[in-house]
Write a protein that binds this DNA or RNA. Structure first.
Lengths: 206, 206
DNA sequence: TTTCGAATCGCATGTTCATGCGATGTCAAA
DNA sequence: TTTGACATCGCATGAACATGCGATTCGAAA
């Protein structure tokens, strides 16, 4: 028996979902709220197993801020975001904040139910295209304008090494390190170590 | 009708899978190989829709290197990794290389089939705990030992700004920037901009 | 066979940075 | 009401870095 809570500002959707979910044999759903403010104390006191959380709440705390709040307070339940949006930003912000899943609102009931089960069993249910976005975000750009040796040098920089220590690590002179870094800067269009390191992380060269 | 190819070094598993998948109404599976080397030319010439790729191949090119190869050659099919392993490294390396999904070998046939469908329809099928690992990897550590102002300064550093430009951006003197950075270094236990930036990215403070 | 990128090394100069030691004012918590 | 964290500012010095202009060698591609 999975105890499901819902925060959703649209009354129709909310009540509809509550009825449908509560009607299922293995689910119960008797905690529903129209915003985070009215839910938070209650949900912390009497935690459900899984929370379905709308992102776009009418006013006050947004769904994403809500996730952060629950995580800060060390809430015990899993949070699945429920949203019409599928912009990168909302998705990644939700997951960074601590949601374990993300469903778009067009998800049919059976999928919602299996997502809730999955979240409760330690999974990370996501709508198909959301999952693809998430996986895509890992793909490294493998910036191949850098030579192999330059990539090695950049990697050392990303580990915080000074010219001297890079030289030691790669068994070359500091002057050679200097030359490689010069070329790296030209190719990456930067002109400081910090910028090079930042670019390396942003472009997933590491 | 989804055309499935398999690279798997264990003869029993391979032949078993081929038979099971090919037997399904909406699937065909007549491309199976025991390693990447013997598959690559054929799969590039006559691409399937989806490739199930074992990670731990007996010898030669590993499954992960295989993904990189196919991606380099701009192969047209989706790749689902198929592995007994669920170490972070193998999973993330696979996705970084360009796989769109990751199944553990204990996955029952119906799940394998729906994963293949999902991959073919633009999804990113993953075993439950793999998906959770992937989602967890987004969670920001929100290192709160830094003060708000220090976080702002660090953010500017991550954008590659010099002390002077940070000072301009935050409307404070260079000396104040220096002080903040001093404190950031102490708290993050680093002693250079590059290290601080690297740590900021690694710890997802940005 | 010549050209070109990659990798190696050297030197010199000016800039930026790291770090030591100060200081003041505010605001909240103890 | 005193402590302590935060934010602000200042100065001085040595170390690290950025960048300019060289150079040689090697191997692959043209």
């Amino acid at each position: 028996m999975i105890d499901v809570a819902i925060i959703e500002d649209d009354k129709d959707i909310r009540e509809h979902l509550v009825l449908l979910i509560d009607d299922q044999p293995d689910f119960c759903c008797n905690k529903s709220y129209h915003n985070v403010e009215s839910a938070i104390d209650h949900l912390l006191d009497d935690p459900p197993d899984v929370l379905l959380l709308d992102i776009t709440l009418a006013d006050g705390i947004s769904g994403i801020e809500g996730v952060s709040l629950f995580v800060e307070k060390e809430a015990l339940f899993e949070i699945i975001m429920f949203s019409v949006h599928q912009d990168d930003e909302k998705v990644f912000d939700s997951l960074c904040a601590g949601a374990c899943g993300y469903l778009t609102k067009n998800t049919p009931l059976p999928k919602i139910l299996s997502a809730i089960k999955e979240a409760h069993n330690g999974g990370a249910p996501m709508s198909m295209n959301i999952a693809r976005m998430v996986v895509q975000s890992f793909r490294s750009k493998a910036n191949s304008e850098l030579s192999p040796r330059e990539r090695e040098v950049l990697l050392e920089l990303c580990n915080g090494k000074s010219y001297k220590r890079v030289a030691e690590a790669l068994f070359i002179s500091q002057d050679t390190v200097r030359t490689h870094i010069r070329n790296i800067y030209r190719k990456l269009e930067v002109n400081s170590k910090a910028e090079a390191v930042a670019k390396a992380f942003k472009d997933k060269l590491v």
